[in-house]
Structure formats: structure tokens, C-alpha cells
Design a protein around this nucleic acid. Structure first.
Length: 770
DNA sequence: GATGACTGCCC
DNA sequence: ATTCTGC
DNA sequence: GCAGAATGGGCAGTCATC
């Protein structure tokens, strides 16, 4: 029902919307605006202002800056040809718009025009800027009073943004929406805000739908394409320093206190009074700017990236700068992410039955996590037919099933139906490998996050070809480091030394064994809606087993607690992390439940599971984001009585409640010292050194050899220390003084007593005998 | 060519 | 990875 | 229970610099 309207809505946006603007002219966006229209002239002037601003930038720290700017601008012009042809071609012959007032007038004209054109919407109620709550109320009111849902749902915060049908969608609209979402805690409302924006984009600037979605999810492309920004905190410090004429240290300091680089950027823009109206950023131009940054590689690429970032910032105002920077840091931090974006997209396409639409969109995204593929099909065929056009198929990584941690066997039995039964498989400590066998014989291997790992595992590729009994398939498995001589599993740390780009199969130093545990597709048939029992059967029929190369994950079906307990012990003895528990009748439908498996590890158990250590708090880190204004993490140390020193062993950032974190910040702040004590043996430096007085109990999954920490250095490794894997806070140990903390010897002992290390030693002993 | 800082991606 | 928290 | 956002160790790869 609603599908038809959506389809037509997508394919012919102009008919439904923008009645006055588009219908009269019926031309492509480029030609809608007459050459002599005020809008065009305004754009010409804007262009000039940008150039002028760049040339007049006060803080010329280096002499080549202007040259660089010119280059950047030119580059950008070229790069943006696709995006915005008009402006590039008209830079030369544009006239001297010397009057800012004129520009403002044009703004107003455009705004007014916009209001008239936009629909016969009833005038928004005159109402003072209101609190969150009243905003929410007003939007509800509007809904009730609506004539047509699409018009009246238009959020007020977009009303004053000039944006006509056929125009490129202004980035300002996205930034305003993200800001609004950031301030709103209700998830449904956040989704509504985004869906309203998406609806507008699809109405007025349908070609910008894709970039809008990418920017909303803070993604550049499907993960499997391996596009990386290559921009981190440090580069952004430099870029911001250059853009604002301040030192990197100033920026760093401000970032520390504000807890967010984006906020720093926004504040910087405000203090820099702009004399000229900057060129408006568009969603398209920001997106393509980010892509350009990602595509820069090689010599002096870092400076080029910085220049491009500066260029974007130069055109960004207010919250635009904040979100450009946040996009570059990789954290949008607005309380809305993938799942909500999908829901917003669904609701934008079908507000009548958004629940059904959300199910479809989420299911589609789970089996085909690529907006590049989804959006064109959505536009062409509508939501109702989306699944058929984005089918599960080899060559496209699907979202993998994840597992919930469980604190004990009780919890497992509570969650599963004992009658039907569940399987207990070893949880291998390796890397998720989703193996695809394509129709043409190609093999692809994807990571847990849909990264393309094919070139990392040419050995797996060739063995799949050798061992397969089927034509096409998708297998879920864990790739585990394997000692071919001793036919043993090797620890994760060994696997992680494996090269990511293997040129020559012969160069491979770390062999892997594939432990297959699920099959999601075989010979043209999707298995995700089939019960595990069936998928498992299909898996067993489809491949030959070969020891040390490709085997099935060890597992046994169970119905009761005792069996689970026995199997857990067995798994640990076999150098595994614990158990994966899966209901036998469960499907592989990520959209319905992304964590439908359970995982049970020794260190989850409250009773005597995992290693716990009592450690001294010797440093603290300033929190970011929601931890701004207090400590967000700590540096911990063990006590070495031999050398009478504190040796750092790990940082710690999880396990405490918000309340505890507040308390710890208060307690520890008075302990801040300027420089570390002479008896602090450390390689890393926290934001604040602390007087070593407080002892905390910390739990960890494993102990590892560490290049960054000094604990037990010399005891298990000549120079390297020991660190903790997955450290988390357990409780305060008021009863302990620093000297009572876990000792270096104890740390060494804990390291050596680990199953994995023991197993290795056993083998070494054996091999020495031979 | 070696080194170190930085980044992204595994867990 | 682990963990906490608002919805 | 979901979804999101805090935070961990440690590796290879990349780029700047020496």
C-alpha cells in the first residue's frame, strides 16, 4: 500500500513536493536558476569572498601558505566538478561584489522566497526559543494539526536554512540536525529528526541521499572497500592549529578541557570574526572532501590532508565545524548510530508503516551492509521490494552473529530452552573469518567488521578451493594461529603478528587453522533463516576436513548445567577462551537479534574466574565525551619489592559506574603530582601523575608480554614487561597499601601459569627431548 | 635504510 | 574487547 | 534488552624525519 506511494515519491520527487519551484520550470537543477537571478549572483560573490578570506588569513606562519591555499582551492575546484559545476566555471568572470549588505539582502530574499516556495505550510507558531520539552510538544502539536504529514513535520530548526528543490543539500541542514539530535536523549525523537532531514533531502536533493546517510553514520564507503581517512587526533591538532593561528599545544590543552575536538573547532570559528560570507558547505562537498582526504596517500600526503581540512573549516560555520571535525575523528558522538540511522531511513521512506519498513531496511542492511547498493535499489524499487534486490550473496560480507557475555551457567540455562537444547562450542582465540566462495571460483575473506581480509589469507583461499564440495558458499569461522610442527593452537598475540598484506604464500610466517562453525549460504541458497541445526548439517556436508587447515569447531550439544561445566573446563584446557553457546533452533537473523549467541569465559564468572590483581593507581587521564570534566581512565602499577619501585601494568577505563568515576575523580585530584616519583618505572605518561596511595582490584582475561608497560620486566622477558588483556575495574581495596599490591613476582607467576604459556612450555620441553 | 609517531583494526 | 546507562 | 558510548592491549602499515 504505502509502497506505491514511496516508489513514486522516490522516482519523481518533484511532482510530490516543491510544487511551485520545480513544476513550473521542470528543468535540471543546473538550469533551474536563470543566469541573471539574484541567487546566482550571490553565489558568484560568495566564491570571491572565500578566496579573499583565504588570501587575507592573518596567521601566515609559513611563507608558502598562500600558495598552498591557492593550490588547495584549485584542486578543490577540479574535484568538485561533479558536485557543483556552476561555481567553478564562474569564478573568473564574476564581478566585484563589494558590498556585504547586498549579500545579506540576497540571503533574505532567498530565505523569503524559500518560505513562499516551500509549501502552503501554515506559519510556524510564534514561540520563543524553548526548552527541549516544549519543542517536543510543539512537534507533536504540529503533527496533530497536520494537513499533510510531510510538510508539518518539518522541524523548526531547519526552517531558516536556504535550500530549494534542486539545490545541493546544504551541510548546514545536516549539522543542525545532528546538533539537535545531540541535545535530545530520546532515541525515537533522534530518529525522527534524522528521518525528517532525510525526507527533505530526498525531496529536494535526491542525489544527496547517499552522502547524507554516509555522513550520518560517519562512514565513507562500505567497510569492505577498505577506504581509510588516515586522519587521527594528532593530524587534527595540527590542522586546527594552522586554521586558527594557534599552537598545537594550545589546541591540545583546549581539547583536554573541552573533551571534544569538534567543540574546540566550533569555538575557534566563533572567535574568528569572519568579515565575509563564506561559501556554503554542502552535504556533497563535505562528503567528497572527506573522501578526497581518504584518498590522499604517499609523500607529503599528510600536509595535503591538513590543507584540505583547513579548506573545509574555512567554509564551516558554527556547528558545521564541529561535525566536520567529528567526522574526521571518527566519532559523531550524538547518541545515534547505525541502527538508528537505518530506522530513520526506513521511516523517511515509509512513515505510514515505519515499523515494517524498519524491519526490512535493517534486515537488508544486515545481509548487504552497503548503502552504495541499498540506496539505488531503494529509490528504484521501494522499501517493500528492497530485500529481493539486495539479496544475501557471496562477495558481499554480511553482519556476523555476535554473542552476549554471560556471568555463569545459570544465566545460560535461563536463556535457553533446555528441551530443544543448545550447542557448546569452543571459543577460539583468533580472528573472525567470513569465507565466501563465489560462483566464478573466487574466494573472499571478510573480517568481523566486513573488512576485506582476502589478501591477508591467501593460504586459506587456496585451501578452500581444494576442500570445497560445493559451488558457492558463505562460511562463518575463526582463523587461529597454528603451530604446524606441534599441531597446536597458538595464542592470539602470535596471530596478530601476521602480515596484513601477503605478497607470497611462501612468506607466511604464522600459519592458521580455520575453525568453521556456521554456514550462511550454500549453492545459491541463503541459510540465515534456517535453524542452526540445519545450517550445521549443511556445513558438514559441504567441506572436507583437513587437520591444521580447516576443521569444525569442537562442540557438543547440551541440555544441562553439568555438561556445560565439563565442556567449559575442557575448552580452557584446549587453549580456548571459553564456550560459545547457541540454541539449536536459532536462526542467523542479525536484524532480529544481533547477539543471539552467548559466550561464557572463565573470567566472566564471579566465582574465582579469571585473574584479578590489586594495583596501585599512579596516573589519570582526562575524560572525553560524556566523561568530560572528570577522569576517564587511569594508569595502574604493580609493586616490585626487589627494586622497590612501581611498575606500570595497564591503563584502566571501564568497570566503574558514572557515580564511582565522579568519586574517584574527587578522591584522586588532590593526589596529583607534577612529576612522577623516582620509583615509578614507566614508559608511558598519563595526563596527570598521582601519588601512589590507592589500590584497586582489577580483573583481566589474560596477561601478555608488553612493549609499553614495565611490570615484571626481566622476569618473563629480558626487557619487555607484562600487561593485562581486557582490564576492568572490580572494586576499591581500601584495606591495601601500595606495598600490599600484587607484586612483580606474582605478575610473572600469573603470566607463566596461563594455560597457553604452560602448553607452549610443555611442547618446548618435549621438543628438547627429541 | 632506520626509526619513531601516528593510525586503523584486530581482539 | 568490557562495561555502564538511558530508553 | 537494545543501542550507544566510554574505555583497554597490541599488532602491521604508513609516512615523516633523520
Amino acid at each position: 500500500m504505502s509502497q506505491r506511494s514511496i516508489t513514486s515519491f522516490f522516482s519523481k520527487p518533484s511532482q510530490k513536493i516543491c510544487t511551485s519551484a520545480v513544476e513550473k520550470k521542470e528543468k535540471s537543477p543546473e538550469s533551474i536558476i536563470p543566469e541573471d537571478s539574484p541567487i546566482k549572483q550571490q553565489r558568484k560573490r560568495r566564491r570571491i569572498y572565500v578566496d579573499e578570506e583565504d588570501e587575507q588569513r592573518p596567521s601566515s606562519t609559513d611563507s608558502t601558505e598562500n600558495e598552498i591555499d591557492d593550490v588547495v582551492n584549485k584542486e578543490n575546484n577540479n574535484d568538485n566538478i561533479k558536485v557543483d559545476k556552476e561555481e567553478d566555471t564562474e569564478v573568473e568572470n564574476s564581478f566585484d561584489g563589494n558590498d556585504k549588505n547586498t549579500d545579506i539582502q540576497q540571503e533574505e530574499v532567498e530565505t523569503i522566497k524559500e518560505e513562499c516556495e516551500s509549501e502552503n505550510e501554515k506559519k510556524p507558531e510564534k514561540k520563543p526559543k524553548s526548552s527541549e520539552k516544549s519543542k517536543a510538544k510543539s512537534s507533536k502539536k504540529k503533527k496533530k494539526a497536520k494537513i499533510s504529514p510531510k510538510k508539518s513535520e518539518r522541524p523548526k530548526f531547519l526552517d531558516n536554512i536556504p535550500w530549494k528543490a534542486g539545490d545541493p543539500a546544504p551541510y548546514e541542514a545536516l549539522a543542525a540536525t545532528l546538533s539537535e539530535i545531540e541535545q535530545e536523549s530520546g532515541r525515537l525523537k533522534c530518529i525522527e529528526y534524522l528521518s525528517n532531514l532525510l525526507r527533505l533531502v530526498m525531496e529536494r536533493s535526491p542525489n544527496d541521499t547517499l552522502p547524507t546517510l554516509y555522513l550520518s553514520m560517519n562512514q565513507l564507503a562500505p567497510a569492505s572497500e577498505g577506504l581509510e581517512l588516515g586522519v587521527g587526533e594528532s593530524l587534527l591538532f595540527k590542522a586546527l592549529a594552522q586554521a586558527t593561528g594557534r599552537s598545537v599545544n594550545q589546541i591540545k590543552a583546549e581539547a583536554k578541557s573541552k573533551g571534544d575536538l569538534g567543540v574546540v573547532a566550533e569555538a575557534s570559528r566563533n572567535t574568528q570574526k569572519t568579515m565575509f560570507q563564506p561559501k556554503r558547505l554542502t552535504i556533497q562537498s563535505v562528503y567528497s572532501g572527506l573522501r578526497q582526504i581518504a584518498e590522499m596517500t604517499g609523500n607529503s600526503s599528510m600536509n595535503k590532508k591538513i590543507d584540505k581540512i583547513r579548506f573545509l573549516l574555512a567554509s564551516a560555520k558554527d556547528s558545521e565545524a564541529k561535525f566536520v571535525i567529528r567526522a574526521l575523528t571518527g566519532k559523531l558522538r550524538i547518541g545515534l548510530a547505525e541502527q538508528s540511522v537505518l530506522q530513520a531511513l526506513a521511516s523517511a521512506c515509509d512513515s505510514e508503516n515505519s515499523q515494517l519498513a524498519a524491519d526490512i531496511v535493517k534486515t537488508t542492511y544486515a545481509q548487504c551492509p552497503s548503502f552504495d547498493k541499498i540506496i539505488p535499489n531503494l529509490i528504484k524499487y521501494g522499501v517493500d521490494n528492497l530485500l529481493d534486490h539486495c539479496p544475501l550473496e557471496p562477495g558481499m560480507p554480511l553482519k556476523p552473529m555476535l554473542a552476549h557475555p554471560t556471568k555463569g551457567i545459570d544465566e545460560v540455562l535461563k536463556r535457553f530452552d533446555a528441551k530443544i537444547g543448545f550447542t557448546c562450542e569452543h571459543k577460539y582465540d583468533g580472528e573472525r573469518a567470513q569465507i565466501h566462495l563465489l560462483e566464478d571460483g573466487t574466494v573472499k575473506i571478510y573480517s568481523r567488521n566486513q573488512e576485506d581480509n582476502t589478501i591477508k589469507y591467501p593460504d586459506i583461499v587456496s585451501r578452500i578451493k581444494e576442500l570445497t564440495k560445493v559451488k558457492t558458499a558463505i562460511i562463518d569461522s575463526e582463523a587461529v594461529a597454528w603451530d604446524t610442527n606441534l599441531k597446536r593452537i597458538l595464542p592470539f598475540q602470535m596471530l596478530s603478528t601476521r602480515k596484513k598484506k601477503v605478497d607470497n604464500v611462501g612468506d607466511i610466517k604464522v600459519q592458521v587453522c580455520v575453525y568453521a562453525f556456521d554456514m550462511l549460504y550454500v549453492d545459491g541458497e541463503s541459510l540465515v533463516t534456517k535453524p542452526l541445526k540445519e545450517r550445521r548439517d549443511r556445513l558438514r556436508q559441504s567441506f572436507e576436513i583437513k587437520e591444521g587447515e580447516m576443521v569444525l569447531a569442537t562442540g557438543e550439544d547440551a541440555h544441562d548445567a553439568d555438561t556445560v561445566a565439563v565442556l567449559l573446563d575442557k575448552a580452557i584446557k584446549d587453549s580456548c577462551e571459553g564456550l560459545m553457546l547457541k540454541a539449536l533452533d536459532d536462526t542467523y537473523e542479525i536484524a532480529k537479534r544481533s547477539h543471539s549467541w552467548l559466550k561464557l569465559k572463565k573470567d566472566y564468572l564471579d566465582s574465582a574466574g579469571g585473574d584479578t590483581l590489586d594495583l596501585i593507581v599512579v596516573g589519570a587521564y582526562d575524560g572525553t565525551g560524556k566523561r568530560t570534566g572528570r577522569f576517564g581512565g587511569f594508569l595502574l602499577a604493580c609493586y616490585d619489592s626487589e627494586n622497590e619501585e612501581y611498575q606500570t601494568i595497564c591503563k584502566l577505563g571501564t568497570g566503574f559506574s558514572d557515580e564511582q568515576l565522579d568519586k574517584f575523580t574527587e578522591i584522586l585530584k588532590p593526589l596529583i603530582i607534577e612529576t612522577p616519583k623516582a620509583y615509578y618505572n614507566h614508559k608511558m605518561s598519563p595526563d596527570h601523575w598521582l601519588e601512589g596511595q590507592i589500590v584497586w582490584e582489577v580483573k583481566a582475561a589474560d596477561l601478555s608480554i608488553s612493549p609499553a608497560h614495565t611490570a615484571a620486566a626481566g622476569l618473563v622477558h629480558e626487557e619487555k614487561g607484562v600487561s593485562l588483556r581486557f582490564p576492568r575495574f572490580v572494586r576499591v581495596r581500601d584495606d591495601k597499601k601500595p606495598e600490599d599490591a600484587t607484586s612483580a613476582e606474582q605478575v610473572a607467576g600469573m603470566y607463566k601459569s596461563q594455560e597457553q604459556v604452560q602448553a607452549l612450555n610443555r611442547n618446548e620441553d618435549n621438543s628438547e627431548d627429541y
